[in-house]
Amino acid sequence: MIRKLTVQDHKTVMDFLSEEPSINLFIIGDIEAFGYETDFQELWGEFHEDGKLNAVLLRYFESFIPYAKGEFDVQGFADLICNYSATPIMSGKASIVEQFEHVKGIELGPKKATFFAECRELTPINHTEYNIKIATIDDVDRILNLRMQIDEFSLSKEGRKMIVQDIENGTGRTYFIEDNNEIIACASTAAENSVSAMIVGVCTHKNFRNNGLATAIMQKLIGDVLAEGRILCLFYDNPAAGRIYKRLGFQDIGKWTMYRKKQDHHKK
């Protein structure tokens, strides 16, 4: 049986999701931030006959994230999604969301699959003398200036607003190193919640690469977040970057697949 979830289901839902806190980072974060009943966010649960929760579906505007631990009612979730959009933005654990590729009625957009890794314990690489700072609102434009110079990055129009919002709401932070008042390397968290956080935006100015700047920042950031009792996770599709992350203590836990609308820049 699939039904709408409410605040009365909160403990059951969080217990279910928290068994894989990294995979469920977005769902957990959105529940903590916005609850179960807003005009832009809803959640449904599929329950066994004995009342045990089997699967969860999140709608955040036109973006959907399904999660299950085994077989689930793919068609039932698809029917719900189609009530909102025949061409939804969808993302999630690859083994779950890729089942929707074969469901009639849903037209999925461009697909991107990435590795998904998490860190539960830091492996320090070396001691650093770099002065690593935590960004405030006053540093946002300098962060964006660096990101705009990174070829691999695709910045959305809402980029500045999202960084500011993360800092103000405590759902993200940016650590950086500067040189002559210019930020030359940085790394950020996003979607921080009570149990997990995601690392995003790791970059170094092209003139300062191969000096260990990003690694030093990551080491500091990882240590601070883990000390708060949270697990860290990240996406990567570059094997070279993956090797650096693994040296710091990250381990692959699966793949994350996204289906986006063309020219879509939604955070999920």
Rank of each mutant, 00 (worst) to 15 (best):
C233S: 15
A78G: 06
I244P: 07
R120T: 15
S95Q: 10
G105L: 09
L58R: 14
F26K: 05
A55M: 07
A240H: 13
F72R: 03
C82P: 00
E158H: 12
M148Q: 11
S85R: 08
A187P: 02
E178F: 10
N238C: 12
K104S: 06
L122E: 01
D151Y: 15
N169S: 01
L53M: 00
I81L: 11
T87S: 06
V195A: 01
T123N: 15
E71A: 14
L155H: 12
F26W: 06
A94E: 14
F115C: 10
Q251M: 11
Q263D: 13
L58K: 12
G223E: 07
F47N: 03
K268L: 13
K246F: 01
N145E: 07
I244G: 12
D30H: 06
K11E: 05
T257P: 08
Q263M: 00
G212N: 09
Y236I: 07
M218Q: 10
E71I: 09
M1E: 08
S63K: 01
T174I: 08
L144C: 03
N54T: 05
Y60P: 06
Y130L: 08
G242W: 04
Y259M: 01
I183M: 04
R3P: 03
L213C: 08
V195H: 07
V164D: 04
E228R: 14
E49Q: 09
I137T: 08
S188I: 12
R230W: 02
Q75C: 11
E152K: 03
F115G: 11
K104F: 03
K4P: 01
V164F: 02
T257M: 07
N211W: 12
I89V: 05
I217T: 13
G159V: 00
L80C: 02
I167T: 03
D138W: 09
S91A: 10
K220R: 15
F64D: 04
F153R: 12
A135K: 15
D141Q: 11
D264S: 00
C186K: 14
S22N: 07
R173N: 03
F72V: 03
L57N: 01
F40W: 15
A68N: 04
L234Y: 12
M218V: 06
I244A: 05
A216E: 01
Y36K: 05
I244E: 07
A86T: 13
F250S: 07
I253G: 11
K262Q: 03
Y245H: 15
P88G: 10
P66C: 05
Y259T: 01
N238I: 11
Q165N: 11
P239C: 02
A227N: 14
I96E: 09
E168D: 02
L43R: 12
